[in-house]
Amino acid sequence: MATAEMKPIDVPDARYLRSSRFSRIVNVAGIYGIAVLFIIAGAVLQGLGVINNFMTTRNFLNIIDAVALLGIVAAGMAFVTYSGHYADLSVPTTMALTGIVTVELLHYGFVPAVLAGLAVGLLIGAVNAVVVGRFRANPIIWTLAMSYVTMGVIRLVWVNRQIYPDVQTDNLRTIALFDGIFRLRLFNVVSLPVLLMILIMLAGHFLMTRTVYGAQLKLTGSARRTATFSGVNAERVVGIAFLLAAFTAAVGGLIITSLSRVGAWYNGTGYEFRAVTAVVIGGVTLAGGRGTIIGVIGGAFVIGLMNNIMTLIGIGTFSQDMIRGAIFILVVGINAKSLRSLGRDDA
């Protein structure tokens, strides 16, 4: 008898049935719905003759090229946010330090230099992993302090110098390889950063949805206590999330340093907040345990799309900031409202 009265799992609850159709559409379509809206808006503007060259393959390739770096950094950051730890603010200095170390070590060869750079990035991630994962320091404050310390180390060792590859002593082929990180194009279409972004996105998606770690991360992010009591090693799970964020930041550092051809303390400035923007617009909630990596890449794409359309219209950089900020709050607000009306609010 009791089983007959039990509600089947896939029947939505009352709050879901009462929720508006709008909320449900927002919930399903997510960030790609917004992307489609932007593309339609761009197409209409082009039809009206306000902008030119929007609906071209070239333009869309440009947009993707422009957001590849952001997409990579955001994909790692998403794991931190997903684990319920807001953000890793040490990302910019991780990027800078990775780049500097790599350029500094280029004369030992390309592969050792890149590996050393990635290792330094992961070292910062490991410190974050221990302090935030194990000792549960506040992630925002700790990673902020970490970025201070890293910046201090960079300034102490290299002062304000920009580190160039040494053309006199370094192997020119090594330098060409390093420059190629940003510039290499496969089949003259897909650039290496875009390829990396797609690879990281697929790997991240697989990790988050198809592995034990992903399931543990989701549980830890949405309810850490429950996770601990279910036998999940939450300390390790959160630590790995910070390592992943540091890894993608290090990869991003290699790309941005290859782009500017110079290692410097200011490389990567602003990428912590840019990545958080992409992550949160992409549907990963700050409360943790909700969202997807594919959504995050969509978030980065929407940011690129928005910038592209505004630049084509001819809106100045500074007014773009204002519009970007407003859209950011709006998108996240709508998202939160949709979740709340579906009865899935946990913030």
């Binding site: 807001y86 700050l286 500074f318 773009q320 519009i323 950011f328 709050i329 996240v332 607000g333």
Partner: peptide
């Protein structure tokens, strides 16, 4: 509107920078 203060003030920061 019950949006996280981290998000809201990050947004205002961007808007004000433009302003």
């Amino acid at each position: 509107a019950k949006i996280s203060s981290f998000i809201v003030t990050l947004g205002t920061l961007t808007i004000l920078q433009g302003a």
